[in-house]
């Protein structure tokens, strides 16, 4: 686990991601808050959600793009890391990006509540929770579909192969989660159960993808 964390940090450094994702969130958050103070009101949260999701989805594959452009897989091979540590690190990076997106949505909600506490209604809260749950789920599913392909082929060999399933996995998960939770009050016990089921399914798929990614990267020539 220690090696996987070091590898995740290296992914962040390699992609200059630690800065770029922070800047991305910052810019979108500021725009969302400015829009919130205009007649657009609390719909700005849901508008910004789309922008956040698109930007964060691209961030998921930035380490693989950087690896393809600069031969970073060779660098990883020189480090005292087993190949499975490298794969674990990439998946940790994906998980971190997904969680960061969820936390940023919560931060944005908190700012809006501070600015205008009256927006807090049960219906609004349920809607916000749906989005907050959906965003990490979509990102984790995107990573789960994409990472094995990237680990097997590399971004340089198959960019289209990578981008199309990325979008498909995101949209598909968003649709399934959204329709699956339709009409369910997410603040109720039934809602908590539904949310838990979604989380368990997504995490299970992510873990299966991790195991597949390990096997594929183990066999790859660098």
């Amino acid at each position: 686990m220690h090696n996987a964390i070091k590898m995740m940090v290296l992914d962040c450094r390699a992609a200059s991601n630690r800065n770029s994702i922070v800047y991305l969130f910052l810019v979108i958050d500021v725009l969302a808050v400015i829009l919130f103070l205009t007649p657009v009101g609390d719909d700005s949260l849901f508008i910004s959600f789309g922008a956040l999701l698109g930007g964060t989805a691209m961030t998921l594959i930035v380490p693989f793009m950087a690896a393809a452009q600069r031969g970073l897989d060779a660098l990883y091979a020189l480090l005292p890391l087993r190949r499975r540590d490298i794969v674990n690190g990439h998946y940790l990076f994906g998980g971190l990006v997904a969680v960061s997106m969820g936390l940023n949505v919560m931060l944005l909600v908190g700012i809006m509540l501070l600015l205008q506490p009256s927006i807090l209604t049960p219906e609004w809260l349920s809607r916000v929770i749906r989005f907050a749950l959906m965003s990490p789920a979509m990102l984790l599913m995107m990573a789960a579909v994409e990472y094995p392909l990237l680990l097997r082929f590399g971004f340089d060999r198959a960019p289209q192969l990578v981008l199309l399933p990325l979008i498909g996995a995101g949209v598909g998960t968003g649709y399934l989660v959204s329709t699956g939770l339709q009409g369910i009050d997410l603040v109720s016990p039934q809602g908590v159960l539904a949310g838990t089921i979604v989380a368990v399914v997504v995490i299970a798929v992510f873990v299966v993808s991790l195991l597949l990614g390990r096997r594929l990267y183990e066999r790859r020539s660098l």
Binding site: R13, A15, Q69, R70, G71, A74, L78
Partner: peptide, 12 residues
């Protein structure tokens, strides 16, 4: 190890 070719990110 030193390899023939680039192994570090551009911005480092």
């Amino acid at each position: 190890v030193q390899l023939d070719g680039s192994i570090y990110p551009d911005t480092w």
